[in-house]
Structure formats: structure tokens, C-alpha cells
């Protein structure tokens, strides 16, 4: 994949690191909605932006809502929590505990999405940072809407090379019919760093140098 090839072990390690992050995120979501959250074992893929848009487009034809947070540190990029737009108000209702009037829900929508994304993405990114022992700074979350290809539009300032660490994660919330995805867009140097860090993680855990 575009110069970044993970070994099988690195792939395992990445999946595991992500798994920890996602578990953390799912636990956070569980607390927020007070309902069972079904979490699929994450599948991690490094794909091009276009591929990521296709993967997402294949699954979600409608407009999407994404909460995006930039992260910077040893590796930098942008993380997104993505879910179908028609789930948006449901999610808000879920995290506000069904106590708000419909008007309040609409009024709170943007804010609630932002906070939910913040909790989930922070949980995920922070755990990865802890696992890889490299601190990350995270920006304030931003909510935006659009189709699959809009979400993966390159950030002109960041100058990313168009690779996406795409995690198929289904946050499936029973009785709410909510689902979501997490994607992280990183440039090539960041992915190279990530690969290195995964190697160190493996060495530490397995007790030998990565192949």
C-alpha cells in the first residue's frame, strides 16, 4: 500500500492497539447511552482516500455526519467518527438520556455530537498514545456533514498523501439502530512512524525484534 506495508505481526499489533482504543471508546459510549453497545472486532486497513470513500459509500448511501479531531505528535493526522446523518438525532437522544424535548434535542444536536465524538475519539486516540508511549495533542472536535468522498477530501493545509487508516468498526447500539465508523487519515511520514512504534510495541511484548 503506497510504500507502507505492515508485516503480519505489525498488522496484528495495530489491530490490537486499535482494539484497545475502540474498547475504551465503546465503554465510553456505553456509559453515555446507558444501553448495550455491540462492538465488532475491528478490522484495520490502510487504504487510499478513494478506497476509503468507496468502502464507506458502499455501506452508507445517505449523507453522513462526522466528528473530526486533529491529532499531532509523533504521528499526526485527523481522526473521524462517522455515522449516517439520519442517526444523528437518535444519537443525541441516546446520549442526552431521553430527557430533552424535541426542540432541545435539535438545539443540542451539534453540541452533543461534538461531545460524543470528543469522548469516543479521545478514548481511542489516547489509548493508542498510551500503548505506543508517544503523547498526542488533540484538537477541539468539529462536526461536519457530507458524502463519503467529502469526508475524505484532503486537507489542503495538512498536505496528506492520501492514505487512510480505515477501521471498520460498527458501534451498534441496540434499540437505537445506531452504527458508526472510525477512520484516521495520516500522511506517509506519520504512517512510517506508526510502523516503527508498532515494531517497538511488538519487541516489548514479544521480546524479540520485529521481522
Amino acid at each position: 500500500m503506497g510504500g507502507i506495508e505492515l508485516t503480519e505481526l505489525e498488522q496484528d499489533a495495530l489491530t490490537e492497539v486499535v482494539n484497545i482504543g475502540v474498547s475504551r471508546a465503546a465503554a465510553a459510549l456505553r456509559k453515555m447511552v446507558g444501553k448495550q453497545v455491540l462492538l465488532s472486532v475491528p478490522a484495520v486497513e490502510i487504504v487510499t482516500r478513494e478506497r476509503a470513500a468507496t468502502l464507506l459509500g458502499e455501506r452508507e448511501s445517505d449523507e453522513l455526519v462526522a466528528v473530526r479531531q486533529s491529532f499531532a505528535g509523533a504521528f499526526s493526522g485527523r481522526a473521524m467518527l462517522i455515522f449516517p446523518e439520519d442517526n444523528s438525532l437518535d444519537l443525541v437522544r441516546a446520549v442526552t438520556g431521553d430527557e430533552l424535548s424535541p426542540e432541545e434535542v435539535v438545539e443540542m444536536e451539534e453540541e452533543a455530537l461534538s461531545e460524543t465524538g470528543n469522548v469516543i475519539l479521545n478514548g481511542c486516540l489516547a489509548t493508542m498514545a498510551n500503548m505506543l508511549k508517544r503523547p498526542l495533542t488533540m484538537s477541539i472536535p468539529v462536526v461536519f456533514r457530507g458524502g463519503g468522498s467529502d469526508l475524505f477530501n484532503p486537507d489542503p493545509e495538512a498536505g496528506e498523501d492520501g492514505l487512510v487508516l480505515f477501521l471498520y468498526i460498527n458501534f451498534t447500539v441496540l434499540e437505537r439502530n445506531l452504527r458508526g465508523y472510525i477512520a484516521m487519515m495520516m500522511d506517509m511520514p506519520s504512517l512510517a512512524t506508526l510502523k516503527d512504534l508498532l515494531g517497538q510495541f511488538i519487541a516489548e511484548v514479544v521480546g524479540e525484534a520485529p521481522q
Binding site: 490490537e16 482494539n19 484497545i20 474498547s23 462492538l39 472486532v41 489509548t127
Partner: peptide, 9 residues
């Protein structure tokens, strides 16, 4: 290692 650091499943 993932489990010991908080992975769920």
C-alpha cells in the same frame, strides 16, 4: 498485551 491495556474482547 492489548487485553492487559484495556482491550475488551
Amino acid at each position: 498485551a492489548g487485553m492487559l491495556h484495556g482491550a475488551e474482547v
